[in-house]
Design a protein around this nucleic acid. Structure first.
Lengths: 336, 336
DNA sequence: CTGTTAGCGCTTTCAC
DNA sequence: GTGAAAGCGCTAACAG
């Protein structure tokens, strides 16, 4: 019954409908709604009443268009939201940008670079206020293009490559070195490495850390003990089994992310020592010793959000130097 | 150098800039871009060249405004994206709506009804094409209001209350009854119940299933053995410990979601039998018997996405009757 | 095959 | 204190 639009459209009441109802002009309605001090209390009253009666909802799309930029959206580009690591990142990000009236648009690319390219282009088209990306690979020309078009870009977990941008990293090298050193301190001399494909920045950094620990201890690096490529736990279990089936198998494994650690847990008996990057739920309930290098993935999202918000609130062309945040890791030991 | 906007704004080239460059009108550019058959190949060629040279990106905001509805966004309202259950739902949803050119805007409410209200209002303001919600509580007037304003709403995991809407449910009652029956079949006669607050629909449905199984077996229902309220694993472990400290403690526990099951795993020794709703990673590696009632949470998101897409593609006022999808559960047994 | 006109809903600018 | 005009970038609806 309260559905009387002149046009017969299904589009809800507009500012002018409210204005008509309240007997004022459209301008006055905007002002009243935005608490402009120079509207008389009486008028404001009437406007608010009309708004309530009509069930008026401002149209953020129109507002955004008029204002030029500022859709009030930030785009999040991740490879796999099912990985708790990314969902926590998303949560941390959303909590920070939410405080600034921004909403998060998620885009899941499933490790597919083409999908990532399309997604970024689409986000630019939608005039998002900024983009947070965990780039799948080193080819980031699509992100560079977005940045060049004036969309603030923040890289999370991996650095920008081929262009400059704010980014938040984890101390991949240090954490991996620390974990490997702990295995060495336990007396292990043949230590395997399990990780995702070499194209993934974090994997390669963590491999560097592993190698550095071996080198510092004067241990030889054996390529046969390094397996890069496992993206999920099944792959990882398979790779771990292969390593352990060598004639001189490693006596310990360092796993460079939680997918690989969980795969290794499934494949390796309790006699094989395990250390891994990334904490995960129930790591303490597996009935075996486990050394974990942990970090705060919510904080990764929050830090990225803060960098992005700062950048958004900057004047368009005041190109401050890109900022980098590196999050520390901390070692955990789950008892057997 | 390629940044010559009349207005001096920082807003990138517009359709008219492209038109000028290509020596045609704005209309022709739109047509060329949307593959309208009645533009000559030559003209299209020139337009595309101009687009490339200028780095033109269409403005989806302007398009959306012009087209009336259709922001190309769907809103997702969940309580806790860190729960794998919700992140998978998000993923399933995004995969389905993505096929229709829609993006997902996430909103995490943290169980806060006020936050949920604000979020829904904001999504309506942004003119999302539809909303998928996992309502935190039975008070859903904000969702009803959105639906009344013509925004398609789909409820996931919980039914709409106080209004009509498409929804996707899990067979909460049947699954809980099944799990409880399995404990009974193992010979247990004092079975505890652990779940989130009674305000959560699924918890109450699953409690009904638990009670039905007891009744069918002629077992008495003992209120002291029912604990509703635990939202996280720490709460749940605490509640489980309390149950097991009674003078006539239950010999088995049915846990109505994965948070509660994990809490119970931490609190209960191997002598206590455990059954739980929701599968979770590593459930098979805990070194104890565990009966799980599982369902496909990706599919929950996909099904919700399909209902929403259907509804969006409908004519505005053809109010087809609300549809309901119920997903089956399947029992799993992890060995001890 | 291509162009002109008009307007989506809002807000900035300038009058009154 | 309030209003009228103009236009953000795009696209239906009509010309030609």
């Amino acid at each position: 019954m309260a559905r009387s639009a002149k046009t017969g459209r299904s589009n809800g009441p507009t500012l002018r409908d409210v204005a008509g109802r309240a007997g004022v002009s459209a301008m006055t309605v905007t002002r009243a709604l935005r608490d402009d001090p120079r509207v008389s209390p009486e008028t404001r009253e009437r406007v608010l009443a009309a708004v309530a009666e009509l069930g008026y909802r401002p149209n953020a799309v129109a507002r955004s268009l008029r204002l030029g930029r500022a859709s009030g959206l930030v785009g999040l580009v991740v490879t796999n939201l099912a990985n708790p690591f990314y969902s926590r990142l998303a949560l941390g990000l959303d909590s920070v940008v939410g405080e600034h009236g921004l909403k998060t648009v998620i885009g899941n690319t499933g490790q597919d670079l083409d999908a990532e390219r399309d997604l970024v282009a689409d986000l630019v088209t939608r005039r998002v206020d900024g983009i947070i990306a965990v780039p799948a690979e080193a080819d980031q020309r699509h992100l560079a293009a977005a940045a060049a078009q004036g969309v603030p870009v923040v890289c999370a977990s991996r650095p920008p490559s081929g262009f400059e941008a704010d980014h938040v990293l984890v101390d991949d090298f240090g954490g991996a070195k620390d974990a490997t050193e702990r295995l060495i301190a336990q007396g292990h001399r043949r230590i395997g490495f399990l990780g995702p494909p070499a194209a993934v920045y974090t994997s390669t950094e963590r491999l560097r850390g592993y190698h550095a620990a071996l080198a510092d201890a004067g241990l030889p690096a054996d390529d046969r003990h390094v397996r890069q490529g496992a993206q999920d736990t099944a792959d990882a279990a398979h790779a771990a089994a292969e390593l352990l089936a060598l004639h001189d198998p490693p006596t310990a494994l360092f796993c460079s992310n939680n997918r690989n650690t969980i795969g290794a847990v499934r494949a390796a008996g309790p006699d094989v020592a395990l250390a891994g990057f990334d904490d995960f739920e129930l790591a303490d309930m597996l009935g075996r010793a486990l050394t974990i290098v942990a970090y705060d993935s919510d904080e990764l999202g929050r830090a990225a959000g803060r960098l992005l918000v700062d950048r958004i609130h900057q004047t368009p062309e005041s190109t401050a130097a890109p900022r980098r945040t590196v999050l520390p890791t901390r070692p955990l030991h789950y008892g057997g």
